[in-house]
Design a protein around this nucleic acid. Structure first.
Length: 670
DNA sequence: GAGTTGCTTCTTTTT
DNA sequence: GAAGCAACTC
């Protein structure tokens, strides 16, 4: 065993890592080493002789899963580490369902629908039932249905209402497409375990030790899942969480799952981790001062023995441009070329909304400071990526009309929307998939011979492709590349781009995706293209190309930053209406926004700057802003307020002059 | 049937 | 200030 030693843990951490058996609740404040404890516990279990394959560690986000995997990899021998199941809830459910979907009337090759697919389907159905007086908003409907599913409700209790009938039609439609949306993954997995003893017993006996990270973020459905997976009597279930960092209430997360853990798993060992190893005492006291204003907490007292440290700065700016410029300059002044010589990775800019990243990206780019944007509109949202994913999806699941429609339209094949409308209707009437109808066009009275020819050409090719792909030992990436070339996809892609640069870029994206597929199939020959697609759908980002992008300043939302830490943090846009977000005020979830700020503050190790603007460009026009009311709660000892303009007009210190020269020299040399 | 233009509408956070 | 959508032209 390497990389971790039990005696490096403090007494509470040690107790948590070596708790023998039965339920355990670890209340771990920010920065108290909870990932470390989880890792240590896993290593300890393995060292005690627990079969690594019987250990299940569930996290909430992919990022957390990835980090755990790395840390466990360092603490446990690699052949054993490989056997441990370490995944997000969604990925775990996919795993269950890929094996046992037939119990639920789905085929194992079901497609996974992301939000976009979901919306598309919802809109289609909403248009079909078109209620003249009650034009229900598909987005709102999608939201409500999603919430219902996350409460464990798989179907409407009435189909009399517009919403109820939409829900029921939507669910039926998904089923005929042999598809599940993100919420279904959890919901169907729950139903599988709840209603099918055979499956339940198989999974239950497989995992003897369950660990759940970020338990405050689990919703009702996820708790149910965990309960179903756990043994009947005193299960070895260990959960870690912090009620003050519960920031996913809008997704149905219930901090109550954490606060009332005892109700579901009686008589647990309870361990509190309160010593913070991350931040300075000043930063912690500011965080504590803020979070005190929330009611309904399981209260704790975070402390640190780092008594030194700079004060927390609260800085105002004239507008969002100044804010970004100022921060970019400050980062440069502390970066590798300055006297402080901090690596770019030490810095992070945290914001409430993804849209806020743009301003910072521009300013950093101008100064040639490397950066990476975490999350936001992903690689996956690109048109060409969606196209390729649709090709793969349609090939793997012949019932996925949705994907096939996208294939049919890109590149255009002489089968237009009118024909497809007809075919879709015929499919609905005969209970057949779109592909089946096209394969057997008797049901289709298409007048034009041209269209009939186009259909025939397509179905012949497509059938051949599908056979190719099913051939044992086939290389899916090579087949897919062949298909795309043969049907003229690349020419069409090029034609649709305004500039050559854009065309190259998009082609490169496709190429990269195909390469990733090749790599994946080599590494996981068993899972093949299906596994690759699952990974894409669930992770929504590419596995490759992390290396070079990793080096740089981090731009990240407050939500995505949870669990991460940076020596120097700028928390930007602390304005009323943004943080707390306007919507949270009308929805009565301001406490969650306060926790969000708390999460942001506790990301900082050494230096923290919170900024706000007097005006900000919002959806096009300039809006005036007032500082966040939370800033008043922060004010006090250890906090220093000022404005960027005033700092900029103040004379430079000797050190800054020196840095200025150093940077000029560096710029001249580069 | 395909492609283009100008109109609109919004924008939280993630799997 | 993007991204979707309806109506328009080729």
């Amino acid at each position: 065993m390497s990389g971790f030693r039990l005696f490096d843990l403090n007494p509470e951490q040690f107790r948590a890592a070596t708790h023998p058996e039965g339920p355990m609740l670890i209340l771990a404040g920010a920065g108290t080493g909870k990932t470390r404890v989880l890792t240590a516990r896993i290593a300890w279990l393995v060292a005690q002789g627990v079969d690594p394959a019987a250990i299940l560690a569930v996290t909430f986000t992919n990022k957390a899963a990835k980090e755990m995997r790395e840390r466990v990899g360092a603490a446990v021998k690699s052949d054993q580490a490989k056997l441990i199941t370490l995944s997000t809830f969604h990925a775990l459910c996919v795993r269950l369902l890929r094996k046992h979907a037939h119990f639920l009337g789905y085929k194992e090759n079901f497609s996974i629908f992301d939000e976009g697919d979901q919306m598309g389907l919802m809109k289609k159905i909403a248009a079909r039932i078109h209620d003249k007086e009650n034009p229900l908003d598909p987005n709102l409907a999608r939201n409500i249905i999603s919430k219902a599913k996350n409460l464990g409700i798989g179907e409407p209790d009435t189909t009399d209402t517009a919403l109820g009938s939409l829900f029921s039609k939507y669910q039926n439609e998904l089923r005929t497409l042999n598809a599940m949306d993100f919420d279904d993954l959890l919901l169907q997995a729950r139903t599988l375990l709840r209603d099918h003893q055979e499956a339940r017993e198989e999974w239950r006996s497989r995992y003897t030790h369950i660990l759940v990270d970020e338990f405050q973020d689990t919703n009702k459905l996820q708790l149910e899942l965990v309960s179903l997976l756990a043994a009947d009597h005193r299960p070895n279930i260990c959960v870690v969480g912090d009620d003050d960092q519960s920031i996913y209430g809008w997704r149905g997360a219930e901090a109550a799952n954490l606060l009332e853990f005892e109700r579901h798993f009686p008589d647990p060992e309870v361990i509190k981790l309160e010593q913070n190893y991350r931040s300075t005492d000043i930063i912690l006291s500011v965080a504590n001062r803020l979070i005190k204003n929330n009611s309904r907490r399981r209260g704790k007292n975070l402390w640190s023995d780092r008594k030194d440290g700079d004060p927390v700065r609260i800085l105002s700016a004239m507008d969002d441009k100044t804010e970004a410029e100022f921060i970019a300059d400050e980062i440069q002044a502390s970066g590798p070329q300055s006297s402080k010589a901090l690596p770019w990775t030490s810095f992070a800019i945290l914001y409430r909304m993804n849209a806020q990243s743009r301003q910072f990206e521009e300013m950093l780019r101008e100064r040639k400071i490397p950066y990476r944007v975490v999350g936001g509109k992903s690689f996956f949202d690109r048109r060409e990526v969606k196209d390729v994913v649709a090709y793969l999806g349609a090939l793997l699941n012949a019932d996925d009309d949705n994907a096939l429609l996208r294939v049919l339209a890109n590149p255009p094949r002489g089968i237009g929307s009118a024909t497809l409308q007809l075919a879709t209707e015929a499919g609905a009437k005969n209970g057949k998939s779109l592909l089946a109808i096209l394969n057997d066009p008797e049901h289709l009275d298409v007048s034009s011979a041209k269209t009939r020819g186009a259909i025939q050409r397509f179905t012949e090719d497509w059938g051949a492709y599908r056979i190719q792909l099913q051939t044992p030992g086939a290389d899916p990436a090579a087949i897919l590349r062949g298909i795309l070339e043969e049907c003229g996809y690349f020419e069409d892609l090029k034609k649709s781009c305004k500039t050559d640069e854009e065309a190259d870029n998009r082609q490169e994206n496709v190429r990269e995706l195909l390469n990733a597929l090749t790599g994946y199939c080599q590494r996981h020959p068993k899972d093949g293209a299906r596994g690759f697609l699952d990974g894409l759908m669930l992770e929504q980002e590419r596995e490759e190309e992390k290396a070079e992008e990793r080096e740089g300043v981090t731009l990240i939302t407050l939500h995505a930053a949870k669990g991460l830490e940076y020596p120097e943090v700028w928390l930007v846009g602390a304005e009323d209406g943004l943080l707390p977000h306007e919507r949270s005020k009308s929805e009565g979830t301001v406490e969650e926004e306060r926790r969000l700020l708390y999460v942001g503050i506790t990301r900082a190790r050494h230096r923290l700057t919170i900024t706000h603007c007097a005006t900000r460009r919002k959806f096009g026009s300039v809006m005036s802003c007032t500082p966040s009311p939370f800033l008043l709660e922060l004010a006090g000892e250890g906090v220093e307020s000022g404005s960027m303009e005033e700092i900029l007009s103040a004379p430079m210190s000797d050190e800054e002059v020196f840095d200025g020269f150093a940077q000029m020299r560096a710029a001249l040399n580069s």
